[in-house]
Write a protein that binds this DNA or RNA. Structure first.
Lengths: 247, 247
DNA sequence: TGTTTTTATTATGTATGACATAATAAAGGT
DNA sequence: ACCTTTATTATGTCATACATAATAAAAACA
């Protein structure tokens, strides 16, 4: 069993310390939350371990169950715990970007943030070349070629086909073997799409295709990371132009 | 005034729809949360607008204040609202990565996620070259040179000086002018540091310095984005070696 | 009259007690 | 030994009351 009394001590300690230098602006729930988080990481609780019941915590920490519940709710939102009826709450490994998902809504983000996210996507795709080359397999190459072969004709009015873009670039993220990166990308995607189609950036002046998807695949098959970075940079040229025109 | 009655309708609607195809596993709070989020983005509420009081919401939606409070708490955690005493809750523009901060704790993340984050940092620094060149100023160059001049001697036992690393690379992120990117980086930093020093990766076999900080500054001053990407890739070579050895 | 101080008012924060609900464990019957 | 039924238990929800801090209103003062 874990010494949850310690949380109480830490809480009190924090209160004293902070009252000396600055006004304590944090609420009770804040303190309980901090205490619990600290405890969870100091004691090395393994995933699956269960923490005390709400009422026990409330008694031990000397606060109401209301406060405990709010604090636990926060931990749950962070993905730190999952609570099941009867069984109580158990530790879980947080899905980092799952948490972000809810906030990652184009309609509620500031323009600056939206533009920032747009840029981050470009940064990622240029910068991930080395991981692509390290981990790409022959099967991946074949799959990419398959995707490219299904590419809709470029002579359409709309700038490019979104679904196809997603398929191709999504596959690239997959090849990196970095699950975190891939999840991150799938979060960024809707925002990227939104920015691309909104009036946030200047309209695309000229629409030249530089390095094509097919060209990128060829580089990935026979070339070097350096060549791929340059190829990707060229491939994304239209986006860069729009961004830099707005600067 | 906004029609918060609509939330009630949507809630009921959702319940009905979902009960037809699958068992409704979501809790009351989930529904209220969804309803509120949907409403906030459908009606285009500007930042600073205030939403109804807890009791009003409770009455309108026909649920207890407890449920409303939990739902509002979630919105607050997402950075969607801020609540002040007396004034009620007001809409705010969410600080995307501020939310992540709490979960971004090395001790509670899985090894795979930690490694993924380590890699993402490398991707970012290689990929951001174009934005550096687009937005760098003479003052920035001077500041970088100043940082480099304070570089501690490399012939130390410990691989490199963390503070100096942070100063230099942090400044680079700053130059990109992308606040979101910079915040993201400052979140990644502790994780990166943790992974670097933990036994998660193989020990550094040979410690050669490839392109130095000074070299990077020189490229940024007189070179091209392409050269910078290659320079940065070389600069980070030691990290890449460790990663790929573990593959 | 204009400015400061004091006093309400109000909405969130916290506490408490009760009941509902679902998952598990225990008891019982075949 | 297996299945069904009945407790048990911990979270989910509700209701009410009071504390607290921020604001607005009123009062006092110059």
């Amino acid at each position: 069993m874990y010494n949850f009394e310690q949380v109480r001590y830490n809480m009190t300690n924090t209160i004293i310390n902070e009252s000396l230098k600055s006004i304590d602006t944090s609420s009770l729930v804040d303190k309980v939350e901090d205490g619990l988080v600290r405890l969870l990481q100091e004691k090395k609780l393994k995933v699956g371990d269960s923490i005390p019941k709400e009422v026990e915590l409330a008694e031990t920490l000397g606060v109401s169950r209301t406060v405990i519940r709010e604090a636990l709710l926060r931990l749950r939102m962070m993905g730190l715990i999952e609570s099941k009826k009867k069984k109580g709450a158990v530790i879980t490994s947080p899905d980092l970007f799952g948490i972000l998902g809810k906030s990652m809504n184009p309609h509620i983000l500031s323009q600056e943030t939206l533009k920032g996210i747009f840029e981050i996507r470009l940064v990622l795709e240029i910068g991930m070349a080395d991981f692509l080359f390290q981990r790409v397999t022959k099967a991946d190459i074949e799959e990419l070629k398959e995707i490219v072969s299904n590419e809709p004709p470029v002579a359409q009015f709309h700038l490019f086909n979104i679904d196809h873009e997603i398929a191709f670039h999504g596959k690239l993220y997959e090849i990196t073997g970095n699950e975190t990166l891939k999840k991150f990308q799938s979060l960024l995607l809707p925002v990227f799409d939104y920015v691309h189609n909104s009036g946030l950036l200047k309209q695309q002046s000229k629409l030249k295709t530089f390095v094509s998807h097919g060209g990128l695949v060829e580089i990935l098959e026979k070339g070097t990371p350096e060549e791929f970075r340059n190829g990707m940079r060229s491939h994304l040229e239209n986006h860069f132009v729009r961004l830099f025109e707005s600067d």
